[in-house]
Structure formats: C-alpha cells, structure tokens
Write a protein that binds this DNA or RNA. Structure first.
Lengths: 117, 117
DNA sequence: CGCCGTTATATTTGACTACATATAACGGCC
DNA sequence: GGCCGTTATATGTAGTCAAATATAACGGCG
C-alpha cells in the first residue's frame, strides 16, 4: 500500500489569509526550532534560507502579544533559539486543531479526492 | 455585540498548497457563479477582474476529472456560466468541511485569539 | 582579546504575479 | 445580417516577492 489513501492536510491559517498569518509553514518551523535549538539548523532542515526563517520568526513574534521564540547570540553555546511557553502553547493548540480538522472531514476528503484528476 | 467573538475561518486547501489548489477563494467564486449565472457578474461582486475569475475557473476545471463550471457564449441569453453536478457536489462538500472544522476547533481558536496582539 | 557559530540587517538581483488594456469570437434574436 | 453582453485570448507593464550576497554584532571561553 504505497499510497495509504490520499489525505489532505487541512491548512489552517489565522487570523486571516495574509502572508504574516500563522499557518502550517510557521508551525513546522516552530517544531524544528524546538527540536534543534537553532533557527539556522531548523531552516536548513526545512530547505529554506536562514533569512526566510528569520523573517517568519519575526512575523510570528510580532503577531502575538508575547514572543513565541527567544534568541541569544555569541557566548559559549554560540547562541541559539528556544520556544517560549507561549510558543509551546501555540504549537500544541495548532497541532491539535489540525488533527481535529482531519478527523472531522475525513469522509468528504475522500469523496473529493476521488473527483480529482 | 458588534464583534460576536472573533472566529477564524478555517482555510482548507487541497490537494496541496500551490496556487492552483482548490481553496476558499475558488469556493466563494463558485458560490457567486451559481447565484448569478455569470462569471463576469460574479467577478464584479467579488471585486476581482474578469480575467482573474476566468483563470480561477480554468484552474478548477483542469484540477478535477470533470469540469465544475460550464459556459456558453452569445445567443439570446448573451451567454453565461453554470455549475455542473460535479461543481455543486464539490461546493457542497467543501462548505460542509469548513463548518465541520469550525465546530471541531472552536475551543482552541478562542484560546489562540486571546494570545494575539 | 581573539575564536567561533550563531543571530541580525542591508542591498541587489531576478523571477513571478497581478493588472490594465485591447481585441476577437460567439450566436439567438429581431 | 447587425445587435448585444458575455465568454475567451493575447500582450505589455508595473508592482511584489523570494533568493542570493555581503556584512555586522554578539559574548562566553580558553
């Protein structure tokens, strides 16, 4: 079963459709930053430039009342990045929302995929 | 109660994130075409150019096995556009999926909105 | 006080997108 | 066969966006 049944990953974005909104891209970046402790490493793993990742982090931090990611430069650890409690909270809820949407739309998803070319 | 509680409109797109994918924009266009019987009128109502609407219709028709919109030119009716059964089906299911996602994520939505700036 | 890998910023270049503009084609009806 | 409002297509242009490039700043540590 190479294609276990095509499923759409619901792409939730908020608060609007603009490019600064929080969506699946920023969520994925957040996951990698949490796992690696570095914006640069996360960016490399996702195949995007450091600048792009940095832009996204800035946009995220500006979007919420409190920053989602904190950073540090230099020192013995050579700097790095960590998720704040707010960041962890946002990531947790977003992930849960994705799963909930997936569950709630499974039947219609399959029907629609059968209509695709 | 002017703002009855900010709610995110889940922006479902499939089959991927590309610009040709079916999402809320094409769904809305489909609704207006169904209501007005004209691509041009629908485009005007949505504040977009006819060309843009036409591009979207083309992309939709190419995406699915059967076209979602049929068109006719000239004649007594001066031409127009209608939804095919497939078009009606897609629109129905997409609308239902939106509503299901809305329901399934209400709690997390509110929590996230409280964190926004 | 220099080493190091990271964060942080500025600038330029090229590609892509959106938009306006223009024009053709259609075809029942009078 | 001309009228009409719509569908359908082509083209040039401006505006926007992504990527590449280059460089500065940081600061614990040996």
């Amino acid at each position: 079963m190479p294609h276990p049944a095509p499923e759409l990953q619901p792409r939730l974005r908020f608060p609007d459709a603009g490019p600064d909104a929080f969506g699946p891209g920023k969520a994925e970046l957040l996951r990698h930053i949490a796992a690696t402790g570095s914006i640069r490493t996360a960016a490399t793993e996702l195949g995007m430039s450091y600048q792009r990742a940095w832009q996204l982090v800035q946009a995220m931090n500006r979007l919420f009342r409190a920053p989602l990611v904190t950073t540090s430069r230099g020192g013995g650890t050579r700097g790095g990045a960590q998720l704040t409690p707010t960041g962890e909270n946002v990531l947790l809820r977003y992930t849960r929302m994705q799963a909930a949407c997936q569950r709630a739309t499974r039947t219609d998803q399959r029907a629609l995929f059968r209509l695709l070319k």
